[in-house]
Every structure is written in C-alpha cells, then in structure tokens.
Design a binder for these strands. Structure first.
Length: 897
RNA sequence: GGGCAGUUAGUUCAGCUGGUUAGAAUGCCUCGCUUACACCGAGGAGGUCGCUGGUUCGAGUCCAGCACUGCCCACCA
C-alpha cells in the first residue's frame, strides 16, 4: 500500500514545487511563430504600492482559469503581467516614509525625491508579483511591464503629442477638483461624494446706498438681499448675486449693485435662469473661482474670478485690492474651516447673519487621501474626448466589444455619452512628465526636448489612467511595430471589477480605437467585488480584511481560488466571502486528494488509459456522467459562467464519483476476478484523469500533482510534461448513455430510501445488505456466487466486503431473472427479491418494493441500536414541533383576519 | 432627482430560454472510528420562493404595480 501518500493534503510544498517547475520551463511563455491561434489577456496592472487583496485574488483567479482553459484547448496563450506606477498612491506612500525620517519631499527636491521613489519601487514593487505567483497565475514573466519604464513612457509621450497635433488637447484655466492634501488636481471620477450633515447659513447683502441694515426698518428686497450658502467663507470671492429672471421679488433689482459684507466689494445683481426661485431665498451668491455652477454663471456674464484659497486651502487675499482686506485681515493665512467659523462670527457681530439651518449636503472627498476636495481655479491640460468617445461608443454598439454580463453595456454607454473633457495633468512628481516646454511666451510640444537654451519643461505629470489607457498595446511594444504587437493585438478578454469601468475600461477602449484603429479586446468580463460575511467592503479601517496570503499559507492557493470562483454567479453579483466557504474549499481539495489516493492505491500495474469493453451499469453511468460534465463545464466556461462550472465539478467529483462510483468500484477492486478488477481500474483512471484536466484551470497545483502521479501509472505515450500542456477532455457523445443514467439514478433512489427505512428502524449496517446486479446470461455463475454485490446499506469497505462474502450463504443469491434485479439478503434470515423489470413503471415499483421491505423488516424484530428512550424523546420533540407550528399558523391566521 | 441590482431553508447562495417532488453548502438533530478521506460516511428535520394583481393548462421563473435593502450617477446655493 502507498504509505508515502499522506492522508491529509498539504499544499505548501506541492504548490511551491510546481510553480517553480512551470516558470523554469517557461510553459507560460507563448510559442514563437506558432500556427496556433493566440489567446491573449493583459493583466489589469496592480499598483506597485499594492499587496494582494481578495479583489486581486478573485480577478486574477478568473484570468488564470481562462488562460489555462484556453491553453488546454490548444490556443497559443499569453497572459501578460505588469504593474502600474500609481502616481498619487505611490507618492503618498513615499512621502509618509520621508515624514517618519524627519524629512519631506520638498526638502529633498524633485530629482532626489523621484530617485527615492524608484528606490522604493525596486525594494517593494516586487511584492505583488511574488504574490501573484503564489496564487498560481500562469503569467509570462518574461514579458513583464511597468507603466513608467522607458518603452511605456515613450508610448505615453507619443499619445500626448499625437492628440495635441490632432487638436484634441488643450490647456485651460478651469475649475478642477483640487485635493489640498495631495496638492494636485484630480479628475471628476476620482472624487467620492458623501452626504453629510452640514449647515446652511443665511447672509444679508446690503443694497448699495442702504448699507445700514441694522436699522429696524430694513427689509428683504428693499434694503438688502439674503443669500444662503453651505460654505460661507467663499463669500470672500463673490463677484455677483444671481436671481431668476422670472422671479417677481427681484425683478426690479436686477442690474443694481450690492455691497459684499465685510469686504465692501461692489457686486451686481444679475439674472440667470440656473437659479431656482423656489429654493432658499431665490437669490444665489456667485463665486466663480470656487464653485462649478458659479464658474459657469461667471462665464455667461463675464464676471471676474476672485480666488481666495492657496493650494493647501488657506485663505489668501492675493487678488484683493487693499480696501477689501481692511475688515477681514485677520483671516489671511487661516485654514479654510477656521476661517469659516471666524467669518461667521464677524458677520454675526456686524448683523449680516440671518438664520442658520441644519442641512444635508454632499461633500466631495479625494479617493486617495479622503481629504475634502475644493473646486479650485488652475491651469490644467485637458483631452477633448467627445469625438474619441463617439468611436468608443460605436465599438460597443456595433458589438465589437461585448460586456459580460450585458447590463454593464448600459452603464458604459451612459457614462460615455455624458463624458466631459478629461483633466490629465497632475501636480505630482511621480509620473510621466508632460512633454511641453515653455520659453517666455513660446510653447513647445514634442516627443524630444526642444533645442536651444532657456526652455523649461511643464512641471506636471499625467494622470495615471492616461498611461494605463494604452496598456493593451503599449505593453506589446507600441509605438514600435513589434512582432508581439502584430501577433497579440488585439487581445481577447479584459477581466475586471465594475468599479473601474469608468476609470480604465472606457479609456482603454477610447485609446485603442483611436490609436490602433482596432478595439483592444472583444470581451469585457466584469465581476463583482469581494465583500465580507456581512456584505461590507473589505477594508483595513473596518478590520474585516481576509488576507489571501494567509489563506494560501493555511489551506493552499487551489482552495482559495476554488472558494472564490465557486462564489461567482452568472449575474456578476458581489461576492460574500465567509470562513465557511473557505473551509468548504479546503475540504474539497482534501477530498480530491483522498479519492486520488484511493485510486492510486488500488493500481497494481500499468493501466491502459482507455475505456474497456466489459462495462457494467455503474461504469456506463459514471462515464456517461463524465461525458456530460465535460460538455457542461466547457460550455459554461465559454459562457463565462465560471462559478457554475466550478460547482458542477464539485458536484460530480464528490456527489457522483466519490459517493457512488468509488463505493461501487470496491466490489470489483477487492474481488478475485482479475478481469473485472482491471476493468474497474481502467474506468477509475480514465474518469479521474479527465476530471483532473477539467479541474486544472480552477485548481492548478493539486491537479498537477495528482495528474503526474496518475499518468505515470498508465501506459500513455507522448505524455506532456505538465497537465498545463495537456488538453481539454474530448466530449464523446457516443459514450453518453441516458438509459444507464436513468437506471442508476433509480437504483440510487432506492438505496437511499432503503437506508432511510433502515435508519428509522435503527437497523445496523451489518445486519442488512443490498445486492444488485445486472446479469447477462453468461454471467449467471458469478451472480450465483453472490459476488455481484455492489452496495451495502452503509458504506463498503474492504473488510466489510470480505466479511460479507465469507459469511454470506451460497443460497443468498437466488432466483436470477433476466432483468435487472435487486437482492437483499438479510443475514440468512430472509431474501427479498426485488424485480425492477424494464424500469418503465419505476415509480410504482419503488413504492411497492419499499412497502415490502418495510413490512419484512418490521416482521423480523430487529434490535435497534438507538436506546428506546432516545427514540421516544425524538418523537416527542417532533410532536411538540408540529403542535407549535399549528398554534403559530392559527395565530397568524387570526392576525391576518 | 435619474439609473442598476437584490429580496428563495436558521445563515450564505444556485435555480439557463416557464413543465414532475424548488437544489447546494453550512448550521441543527439522530447514527456510525468503517484500511481513500472524521478536512469523513449514512439518515433526518427545515421553504406560502418580499407583497399584490395579470398572462398561461401550468409561474421563484414572464408582465405590471408596490415595499424594503444595496450600489452607481447628478451642479441645486
């Protein structure tokens, strides 16, 4: 017996061994000049600051399943790895480290700082790629890329310069979302809105010439106008008050001037129909430099823009004339929130403050540092996206790109239709430098620096997404016309969570269509997010994170992958990962291990890897089931329903193969009939070997380990070096046998029912056995020896089987009929002969048979092993439950009436 | 304000184009140490499929309305 195979599967060693083997043999590198069709996925590049979290684990498990499956199907596969430099994120991480050291990025200066980030990257940037290896990802590491490396930087420069020359890029002073903490502009989608309790302050703006509003005769609309605001400090930058042109209350006042309280700036009352007369007082203060709507109003009315904030959100009076400062000098240099508080106090003191209301308002936060974002006036670079977006929409509408599940198509199109120009400049140091140089008034845009003295490069860098938009082709060598680019572009599938459809997917489509004139992929496979047991997002601050690496250490990458994949639904719902599910997957991998151990243990010689001829019902059944499984699993993967495919494999392997076929097989394996034994060995190996190949994309390590052991015990020739290089089992329709499936399922049903009766009556396994055989005439002898025994009412083990054979009287199997029959010898007491006939009137027969068995059993005074009082107790409990239910339902009925 | 998704056993979820008795896992209750596996095996209990109508011979499944939950988008001071 195989002592060297342990009972419990321990993945750690196995996984390490095989990944090394795969990588060293370059199995993941596509064949050169292959005649096979390529199948390509580029990895969504994780941030170099990142560590593998469950989201990555899911995303990459999915991709690995697809790649390995396609490989088995005979495609020339490439899964291209890489990482993203992640501008803000990385800069923040390094800045934090510097702070700990007591220095800062400004102290270091730009050049030194960037050098420092590179150093950091060399040191820690490899974390995530190591972790992807642990997961088992079949990535071609010889082609690994980084967004900030030379080649990809060249691509980004080409991107910008080309777009610029096409007139699709412009620089403009606009309101951007400014993160004071990061000190940079961020794009609209990088702002996270959150509804928070705030306040609405009402402020009185005196009409010119009637400045003494403390006078008791003062009245709204005569002496002053009241405006409402959630951000009172912005009044410092007000340059008008707007009212709706149809608003009767203010009609006469349009064109008159107001005196801005404390600042004493003369500002006009203007009409603009953006203003909703129903809201607040119907009059809106206009701060073009600090509010997007006001900015637009300002544009329409050519209002001056007065900026009141420094880049780190402190009050500045840079644009104030001297007189305006007089009453508010103390605010200068003050933090925005402190200033707000103080300003309100000042207004109050001077009688300009009206009421204060509690108010719910939505506040924008930086997606990186969570600081409150300010609308801020600054010079930025923009991409005019309208035309490119149109092409990108068309690609999806024409079906050249398909979203899976389909509902994301709508989300994508809706987003694209409403797309605004894309702010691509960031005031960071870590990133691709914008290829623009200034020399006084002159501006130079080009891939190489301008010649001559005195040129200074734009200090800004690009939005990270501006470079990752090129990822599907920049990684293959673009803008050079490389062989890889020709062979592998366009790629096939993009796999990602729905959270970055807008950030990334849409931009890749835009740039792919624009620069390559070809969609970057034909399928976008969108999956849900991984959440905790309660459906909450996993995050460090909640403390509900399950670390994939910890799980891998404990139970193996295979089990983790299987847990995640089997949780995927066809609808792409979010996934709730629980400890239970992880345990289940662990148990499954152990089950695979043990069933394989069983098969291996029962092989005493080299086995032919083909189906034998002398098949019996259980053999035909399991082979048929296996054929169906092959078809189902391949169809499901083709349909991108990986979760269902995984569940099908689980069900087959555990529910059919282990629970039934293995048990039945013991009959032959432990028999003296060498022909039968060999037949069964061959069926076992045939089905298990094929199932392993089906399972390999999901659980690459354990399947490799077992497959190698198993295949070495066969006579198969030209064996591939790895299961990864083998093939998907072929679906052989001629082996599908509905009749056997039907018969077998009936048999199973009967056995279950008999077990049920047995359990109810407390009869022990050893006292009752069920024999089954499907005789052909020539097998009569065998049958009469009672060796067609396949299933006891409990579990078959070698010892019980041997015992049964030994103890069973010769006459136990009698009355052989020409049809399928059941025999149930009751340990020498009675034989029941159950005729199933042609299995046509199954239902009736089953019922009849069961009734007979029950009768016989109760006539024969079996002793129950369960103590009578326990049985009594259980019955009482049941009765009680039924009573309770009755009462409850009666009460509910009363209530309903 | 607009859009999307979900609501099925105690819990977490499957259930495709409508068709026998609504499945699985886990938990619970019996029983079983049996040379593949106690990370196991056998059996059992547990569901008016969110609510209300409609289509149909037939509805978790299709349609309409409602309720609740979650997510995304949106400039209302």
């Amino acid at each position: 017996m195989n002592q060297e195979i342990p009972k419990v599967y321990s993945p750690a060693e196995v996984e390490q061994k095989w990944y090394k083997f795969w990588e060293e043999n370059r199995f993941f590198t596509p064949e050169e000049d292959s005649s096979k069709k390529p199948f390509v996925i580029v990895i969504p590049p994780p941030n170099i600051t990142g560590n593998l979290h469950m989201g990555h684990a899911l995303d990459n498990s999915i991709q690995d399943v697809l790649i390995r499956y396609k490989k088995l199907q005979g495609f020339n596969t490439l899964w291209l790895p890489g990482t993203d430099h992640a501008g803000i994120a990385t800069q923040n991480v390094v800045a934090k480290a510097l702070k700990k050291e007591g220095t800062s990025k400004d102290q270091l200066g730009r050049e030194k700082f960037v050098e420092r980030v590179w150093k950091w990257k060399e040191e820690y940037g490899g974390n995530i790629t190591r972790q992807l290896r642990r997961l088992g990802c079949a990535l071609d590491w010889t082609r690994e890329r980084f967004t900030l490396e030379e080649g990809l930087s060249k691509a980004v420069t080409r991107e910008f310069v080309t777009l610029y020359n096409e007139g699709l890029i412009y620089r403009g002073k606009r309101l951007v979302n400014w993160c004071p903490k990061c000190g940079t502009a961020i794009s609209d989608i990088e702002v996270e809105h959150e509804t928070k309790k705030g306040r609405l302050w009402w402020i009185k703006y005196p009409i010119e010439g009637k400045s003494e509003i403390r006078n008791s005769k003062s009245e709204q609309g005569i002496d002053y106008i009241t405006v409402a605001t959630t951000r009172p400090e912005t009044m410092l930058g007000d340059t008008a008050v707007a009212v709706n042109s149809k608003d009767k209350r203010y009609k006469k006042l349009i064109g008159k001037m107001l005196i801005l309280p404390l600042v004493n700036r003369r500002i006009p009352i203007i009409k603009d129909d953006f203003v909703d007369p129903e809201f607040g007082t119907g009059a809106v203060k206009v701060t073009p430099a600090h509010d997007p709507n006001d900015f637009e109003i300002g544009e329409r009315h050519e209002l001056p823009r007065v900026n009141i904030l420094t880049p780190d959100a402190k009050i500045t009076f840079e644009q104030f004339v001297e007189e305006e400062k007089k009453e508010v000098t103390e605010l200068e240099g003050m933090d925005r929130y402190k200033a707000r508080q103080r300003l309100v106090e000042l207004l109050e003191e001077r009688g300009f403050l009206g009421k204060i209301e509690e108010y719910e308002t939505s506040i924008g936060h930086c997606y990186r540092c969570k600081d409150v974002v300010e609308p801020y006036l600054s010079d930025q670079w923009y991409v005019k996206v309208k035309d490119i977006a149109r092409e990108a929409i068309k690609a999806v509408e024409d079906g050249k790109i398909k979203y899976v599940p389909d509902r994301w198509t709508k989300v994508y199109i809706n987003w694209m239709v409403n797309l605004k120009d894309w702010c691509i400049s960031r005031q960071l140091w870590w990133g691709h430098r914008i290829p623009v140089w200034y020399h006084g008034e002159e501006v130079y845009v080009g891939e190489d620096p301008p010649k001559g003295e005195g040129w200074e490069q734009d200090p800004d860098v690009f939005d990270t997404w501006f470079s990752s938009a090129l990822w599907p082709f920049s990684t293959l060598g673009w803008p050079e016309e490389t062989k890889d680019l020709k062979t592998f572009y366009p790629t096939d599938v993009l796999v990602t969570g729905y959270d970055i459809i807008t950030f990334w997917v849409s931009r890749m489509i835009m740039m792919g269509v624009h620069f390559m004139k070809k969609e970057p992929f034909h399928t976008v496979f969108i999956h849900g997010l991984v959440r905790d047991a309660k459906g909450k997002k996993m995050s460090k601050s909640f403390g509900n994170v399950i670390d994939p690496l910890e799980i891998i250490d404990k139970i193996g990458a295979d089990a983790l992958r299987f847990a995640l994949i089997s949780l995927i639904t066809g609808q792409g719902q979010d996934i709730k990962l629980t400890q239970d599910k992880i345990t289940e997957a662990r148990n499954f991998s152990n089950k695979i291990w043990n069933v394989s151990r069983f098969v291996l243990m029962n092989l005493d010689k080299k086995i032919k890897l083909e189906i034998p001829d002398n098949l019996e019902l259980p053999d035909r059944w399991i082979i048929s089931r296996y054929q169906n499984l092959t078809k189902e699993v391949t169809d499901l993967i083709d349909d991108h329903d990986l979760g269902e495919a995984a569940r099908k494999l689980y069900e087959f392997l555990w529910g059919s193969f282990c629970d039934w076929y293995i048990e039945i097989s013991k009959n032959d394996l432990y028999s003296n009939d060498s022909k039968k034994k060999e037949k069964t060995q061959r069926v076992l190996v045939y089905v298990l070997e094929g199932t392993l190949r089906l399972l390999h994309p999901f659980m690459p390590f354990i399947t490799e380990e077992i497959w190698q052991l198993l295949i070495s015990k066969t006579n198969a020739k030209d064996i591939p070096k790895s299961i990864f290089l083998s093939s998907v089992p072929e679906y052989n329709k001629t082996k599908v046998d509905p009749k056997s499936e039907k018969e077998m399922s009936l048999l199973i049903e009967m056995i279950i029912k008999i077990r049920n009766i047995k359990a109810e009556m407390g009869i022990q396994t050893k006292e009752v056995e069920l024999c089954y055989f499907a005789p052909k005439r020539e097998e009569k002898e065998t049958i009469q020896r009672g060796e067609a025994f396949i299933k006891s009412l409990g579990r078959v083990t070698k010892s019980t089987w041997l015992k049964a054979i030994k103890e069973r009287p010769q006459q136990s199997a009698t009355g052989v009929a020409s049809n399928t029959q059941f025999f149930m010898p009751l340990k020498g007491l009675v034989d029941i002969n159950i005729e199933v006939g042609r299995l046509k009137k199954e239902e009736q027969k089953v019922g009849q048979v069961l009734a007979n068995i029950k009768k016989l059993l109760s006539n024969n005074n079996f002793t129950s092993k369960a103590p009578p009082e326990a049985v009594e107790k259980e019955r009482a409990r049941e009765k009680e439950l039924i009573e309770k239910k009755k009462i409850i339902s009666a009460r509910l009925k009363d209530l309903a009436v």
